[in-house]
């Protein structure tokens, strides 16, 4: 069984919001109709987004680190939002595990958003139906696109490659290897929702310099000292050392 998901490397994310704008651009121009956008150039812009980047400060000054935290639907393997839907508009696809909303069946009762502990769903104020990340389902299977572009818009947009996309059930996929080898974790594991999306932790990069890296231990030519300057009629340095 396939379970497509995103793996987001918090150690690499710089909080540039490229994934946010790219997601909005792709999903507002797709077959499902526009994403609500009110007063986009006015003083109080608001609307529906599938993906938002939040920022948290961890620790106390001066020992702080900033975590940029992209947040979208986690495509849970036990999605609490799906069974509560009274119409069946919310569903999880058998073939690839993507959680989707059928916008033609949704009655806009918002019950699924109450049932999501992550706040991943947003009601479209224009169409009055519930919307959420689709993992760009209208893009990842599009055979008219070159194969390298059959990825979610956010993944393609990320300038630091902080977003990986793939099948988390395939143990040798890029995402599974990243989760396994770089300490991937899920959000709010206490609720048993088994999110498919994983996050890679922030890792403090430290430059470790040992003393023997500053002063060369093995330096047969004594480069740090004064180099030998044989007179011009004498053999060259190379020849000097060669005997």
């Amino acid at each position: 069984m396939t379970q497509l998901a995103l793996v987001i490397d918090l150690n690499v994310c710089v909080g540039c919001h490229a994934c946010v704008t790219s997601c909005k651009e792709w999903n507002t121009s797709g077959w499902a109709g526009p994403l609500a956008d009110f007063s986009p150039y006015g003083p109080d812009p608001h609307g529906t987004f599938f993906n938002r980047v939040q920022t948290f400060e961890v620790g106390e000054y001066p020992h702080t680190t900033v975590v940029h935290f992209p947040k979208s639907c986690l495509h849970c393997e036990e999605p609490p939002c799906v069974p509560v839907c009274p119409t069946g508009a919310s569903y999880k696809r058998e073939e690839d595990g993507i959680v989707l909303v059928d916008y033609d069946k949704c009655i806009g009762c918002k019950y699924c958003s109450w049932a999501c502990p992550y706040g991943a769903r947003e009601l479209d104020e224009h169409q009055k139906v519930m919307k959420k990340c689709t993992l760009c389902v209208d893009r990842i299977y599009d055979e008219s696109l070159p194969e390298a572009e059959r990825k979610p818009a956010c993944v393609l947009a990320c300038p630091t490659n902080a977003r990986l996309f793939g099948d988390v059930h395939d143990p040798y996929s890029q995402v599974s290897v990243a989760i396994r080898e770089q300490g991937g974790y899920t959000l709010m594991p206490e609720w048993g929702t088994k999110p498919a999306n994983h996050y890679l932790p922030r890792r403090r990069t430290e430059l470790r310099i040992h003393a023997d890296e500053l002063i060369r231990a093995d330096n047969p030519l004594k480069k740090e000292g004064v180099p030998p300057k044989p007179p011009k009629d004498q053999p060259t340095l190379d020849e000097t050392t060669s005997w």
């Binding site: 946010v20 920022t55 948290f56 961890v58 620790g59 900033v66 974790y185 899920t186």
Partner: peptide, 20 residues
């Protein structure tokens, strides 16, 4: 957010305008 530290403070929530 999966960060193990007792002091975490939100700086932004990703939008300045009203959200759902």
């Amino acid at each position: 957010i999966g960060v193990r530290h007792p002091r975490i403070r939100q700086v932004t929530q990703g939008a300045m305008g009203p959200t759902f």
